[in-house]
């Protein structure tokens, strides 16, 4: 079995199985816990539902924090958008998703894929640079660095494979798939789960504050 066959076959399959099971386990294992009851009378009888706004409104820092969070926000947005576009936008990825789900959509031209991949990698470097430069602000743990590496690897290998640079394409492709498999398998057990938690976390706080008539 060649590296590529291993990557495209058992490796990615096992990683997806771990990811599916892990995400379900962690989401259900937390969300099925007891619900606390706040018996106090809400400020506005029907105002609590307004708290759900926070899920969306927190997508951008409020004016109060615009200046202090500008670097982190802008770079993080660049990273997330570029990564999302690359993950969902280039032909090989769409082909992979189609083979799993049957869904497909038009792809971005390759030069855009390369540009976005480069942007994603550059923004990730910008983020780790700041994390390293300001240890007091970030309080980084080993997990933060491991996560960074695991996120950076598929971007780097993908970019190299996509642009046909470096080792032979099938090796690069295999490394890309393997690093993605690592990311998939790692995802449910790391802070990358924030991809799901952010909705619940924001909504909870939004509701708790809306209960008191405060919009956050």
């Amino acid at each position: 079995m060649s590296l590529l066959e291993f990557a495209r076959g058992p490796a990615i399959h096992a990683a997806l199985i771990i990811m599916a099971a892990g995400i379900a386990l962690r989401l259900i294992g937390v969300l099925v816990l007891t619900r606390g009851a706040d018996l106090s009378r809400p400020r506005d009888a029907f105002g609590n539902f307004k708290g759900y706004r926070t899920v969306f409104s927190r997508a951008w820092p409020s004016g109060e924090f615009t200046t202090t969070t500008r670097y982190q926000t802008v770079v993080a947005y660049l990273f997330h958008i570029a990564t999302l576009l690359v993950v969902l936008g280039i032909v090989p990825h769409i082909e992979f998703i189609t083979s799993l789900t049957g869904l497909s959509w038009p792809a971005l031209p390759n030069f855009l894929g390369v540009a976005l991949g480069t942007l994603a990698l550059a923004s990730l470097l910008a983020l780790i640079g700041r994390r390293l430069a300001k240890p007091a602000v970030y309080n980084s743990t080993l997990g933060d660095y491991v996560t960074w590496v695991i996120v950076a690897l598929p971007l780097l290998t993908g970019l190299m494979a996509f642009a046909h640079v470096g080792p032979r394409y099938e090796t690069m492709l295999a490394l890309h798939i393997l690093s993605s498999a690592l990311l998939f398998a790692y995802m449910p057990f790391s802070k990358l789960m924030h991809a799901f938690w952010f909705i619940f976390s924001r909504a909870q706080s939004g509701l708790a504050y809306a209960h008191k008539g405060v919009r956050i």
Binding site: R8, G9, I12, I17, L25, L27, H93, E95
Partner: peptide, 19 residues
Amino acid sequence: AKGNFGDGAKLGAAAMAGA
């Protein structure tokens, strides 16, 4: 680019088991 592991049936099962 396609994965070479048949269909995604096991993923659904894994999600159920995880849940």
